[in-house]
Nucleic acid binder design. Structure first.
Lengths: 149, 149
DNA sequence: TCCAATGACTTCACGCGTGAAGTCAACCTA
DNA sequence: TAGGTTGACTTCACGCGTGAAGTCATTGGA
């Protein structure tokens, strides 16, 4: 990384470490306790908070920060485990609705406390309120929309 | 994500998006132009900047923010393509040294300008100097060391 | 009314990351 | 100097993500 001044290089190096190491850190406890990946948890968690615990696949993919293809694979596994059912949207057959089963809801409910503790421990607690606001601002500026595919 | 107040939730949501979407954004141009993953590039780039363009595997893994196992697999592929050679450290046979070949050096040199442009476009340019300093500070606070394995 | 276009998925082959188990060199201790 | 220990890798099986290609429902012209 030549051609960056010291300040730029520090920011870049810090960001890269964050982006490469944090997911593993946040995922380990989930994987251990519930056999879920971080993305798995985000998906389940978002459906569980939706009205009637159901949501269109495309909206869910966007909320969970993943591609539709990735979500489709994940939801297929969930369906095989009985955590979710899929059916075409009655209002427009082009959409698919993913609906959380009671069993699926139990899975999120069981995983949530552990996950929340992890998030606090590794992300929220080490930061001051000022840091958290700066993080929000920075993330918004760097936010990118999901590509097609 | 219940049980977080609004400020915490914003920070967490922003961070998660960053962490899940940025790698893909940064990697796409590298993959397109040079057939390299982001981690591939970091590895090559760090060896290329080391004295004599060689470095111990464990040090390289740490610099590139990856596990030794991951690095070992990557370097094996590099070796098959003739970009790197490996040999035991003459000073201490327990270490392995990875050494960049001329061909490997050409690969990094060719990929660097594109990558640098990507980093500026998606990370550095959207941020003010204040943002970048805040990012450095935040990343330092969230920094975690690589786990064993 | 038909058919091309659009867009929401789904599938599959390929390549990569993970983590457990194995190998090996140097060190330590009796 | 033998045997145990440590730590630096390496390997492999497994599961997951990617992106291209395919399917299908709906829409908007001609």
């Amino acid at each position: 990384m030549e051609w960056l001044n010291a300040e730029e290089k520090e920011a870049w190096t810090g960001l890269i470490s964050l982006v490469l190491l944090l997911p593993g850190r946040l995922e380990a406890p989930l994987q251990q306790d519930a056999g879920l990946s971080l993305f798995d948890y985000l998906v389940l968690s978002h459906v569980s908070e939706a009205p009637d615990r159901r949501m269109r696949m495309s909206e869910l993919a966007h909320l969970a920060n993943g591609s539709l293809s990735r979500l489709s694979n994940v939801v297929k596994r969930f369906e095989q485990r009985g955590w979710v059912v899929r059916f075409p949207d009655p209002d427009d057959g082009r959409y698919t609705i993913a609906s959380l089963t009671d069993e699926g809801f139990e899975v999120v409910k069981a995983a949530a406390p552990t996950h929340l503790r992890t998030v606090r421990q590794f992300v929220l607690d080490p930061l001051t309120a000022t840091d958290r606001q700066a993080l929000t601002r920075i993330a918004a500026k760097l936010k990118v929309t999901i590509p097609p595919a």
